[in-house]
């Protein structure tokens, strides 16, 4: 690989195009879709709802994560990943506000994880989709926002290990391990000084070992990218309760007929449902 740019022309700290959309699934309290390029996931939240007696907790809400793979029924792997997502999101939720209830998160994978190489990007997309669904629902109080970022690593001879955010399809053959970092953003988290804290990572190497320095470099790089995702999520909150795209388009057409061109401009401005990073 060249020194600074990658196969698809991205810088090391740049992720693929973000796809964020709030589709408004029926029969749930909040839902959202998140994707890094083609790697995407759909999450939905129901809660606080009535809880089964066995799962009821007297002092806090039960937070349940159900993960649905792209194909087949959820098995051990899906359950393990579900537990991971649960532990990454739990620090951002205030479950004590609704004791004896259930908060149910259902995450549906929308991409295959290939031969396991896209797994980190998919995990990150699932965590981000879950966060967005929680924000969309608005019924579960939160003390922070969790953003996850996949990072790839590749070693080349004696040189320092090269790290890059969100490995794409073309880079899969070159990466030697890597992982996903989840950060929680919030001003008063109580366990740190800053406004951000790393809550989960699964950094690993498939070629030899890695040192502490590499891990902290990877975390710094992931944090830089996670801040960009956070900024994008914040921008997306404005369009969250907004009109689904298709419906609005029809309305715009009607307005054109009536010659309300001035109104049309404002309509266009407000229906950026899918956002892109330029």
């Amino acid at each position: 690989m060249a020194s600074n740019t990658r196969h698809d022309g991205r810088q090391d700290h740049e992720f693929r195009t973000l796809n964020i959309s709030y589709d408004g699934l029926a029969r749930v309290d909040g839902s959202a879709r998140f994707g890094f390029g083609d790697t995407s996931a759909l999450a939905s939240i129901s809660g606080p709802i009535e809880v089964r007696l066995v799962a009821e907790q007297a002092s806090q809400a039960t937070f349940e994560v159900l993960l649905r793979p792209l194909s087949n029924v959820p098995a051990t792997e899906a359950k393990a990943l579900g537990a991971t997502i649960r532990s990454a999101l739990a620090p951002s939720l205030i479950l004590t506000k609704n004791p004896r209830t259930l908060v149910q998160l259902v995450v549906q994978s929308l991409s295959s994880k290939g031969d396991g190489t896209q797994r980190e990007a998919l995990t990150a997309a699932m965590i981000n989709a879950s966060t967005l669904a929680l924000l969309n629902a608005g019924s579960v109080p939160m003390r922070g926002v969790v953003c996850a970022i996949p990072v790839g690593r590749c070693t080349a001879g004696d040189r320092e290990t090269r790290l890059f955010v969100d490995p794409g399809e073309t880079e899969i053959s070159e990466i030697q391990g890597g992982g996903c970092f989840a950060f929680v953003f919030g001003d008063k988290l109580g366990w740190g000084d800053g406004d951000v804290e790393c809550v989960w990572t699964n950094w690993k190497s498939t070629s030899g070992t890695f040192d502490e320095n590499e891990l902290s470099r990877a975390r710094e790089l992931a944090l830089k990218a996670a801040r960009a995702v956070y900024a994008e999520i914040k921008r997306g909150v404005k369009t969250m309760g907004a009109v689904p795209f298709k419906f609005n388009e029809k309305r715009v057409k009607e307005d054109v007929k009536k010659g309300l061109e001035a109104e049309l401009k404002t309509e266009e401005g407000s229906n950026d449902e899918k956002m892109e990073i330029s």
């Binding site: 951002s92 939160m142 922070g144």
Partner: peptide
């Protein structure tokens, strides 16, 4: 203004 959870 727009706020996200955790913001001061």
């Amino acid at each position: 203004s727009i706020v996200l959870p955790g913001e001061n």
